[in-house]
């Protein structure tokens, strides 16, 4: 091999080794660190995995925020998409913009008794801001509500006609 070819071969080898090494690392890391998003309706339908980290988002239900005694920093609150709601437990300091009625996203795990134990609570620093996932979940929840209403009305009408 001429020195020039040798150099080229080296160059190609360095690049191939670098890229393939990085690609393996990346795919492995990506697979381990992706957090899926679920809405309260999806959680209620049992679509969300148990004991596996995912993100849950929705509105903090009014009047649902409770502190466990005076000593600890654990709070409980319900996250809703207006159709279903999930109770969240969180120990720590809530973000500045955490309020009842506010759209939030939490990161944590669902335990077998249906309680979502959050490691992180995110509320964005803009009172008008709605996380896009939450907006979509709310919309879906709203639609579901309307459909259910229509369905019940439909059955009422049907029974009415019968009677």
């Amino acid at each position: 091999m001429t020195p020039k070819r040798k150099k080229r071969l080296l160059l190609v080898l360095v690049i191939v080794a670098g890229v393939s090494g990085a690609a393996t690392l990346m795919m492995k890391a990506l697979n381990e660190n992706i957090n899926l998003f679920y809405s309260p309706t999806q959680v209620a339908a049992g679509e969300a995995p148990l004991n596996h980290t995912f993100r849950l988002g929705g509105l903090v239900e009014s009047g649902s925020l409770k502190r466990d005694g005076d000593e600890g920093l654990t709070v409980h609150f319900d996250v809703t998409d207006q159709a279903e709601s999930v109770t969240v437990a969180y120990t720590g300091i809530l973000p500045d913009l955490f309020r009842e009625g506010q759209g939030i996203v939490t990161l944590g795990k669902l335990n077998s008794s249906g309680l979502f134990v959050a490691d992180e609570v995110l509320a964005k620093h803009d009172e008008n801001y709605m996380p896009p996932e939450v907006a979509e979940a709310l919309e879906a929840g709203h639609k579901k509500g309307i459909e259910e209403m229509k369905a019940t009305q439909g059955t009422e009408q049907a029974t009415g006609e019968k009677g």
């Binding site: 990506l30 381990e32 660190n33 992706i34 957090n35 899926l36 998003f37 996932e133 979509e136």
Partner: peptide, 11 residues
């Protein structure tokens, strides 16, 4: 909808 967490970038 997914998010890629900081552990990905760190690792």
């Amino acid at each position: 909808k997914i998010s890629v967490g900081p552990p990905y970038f760190d690792s």
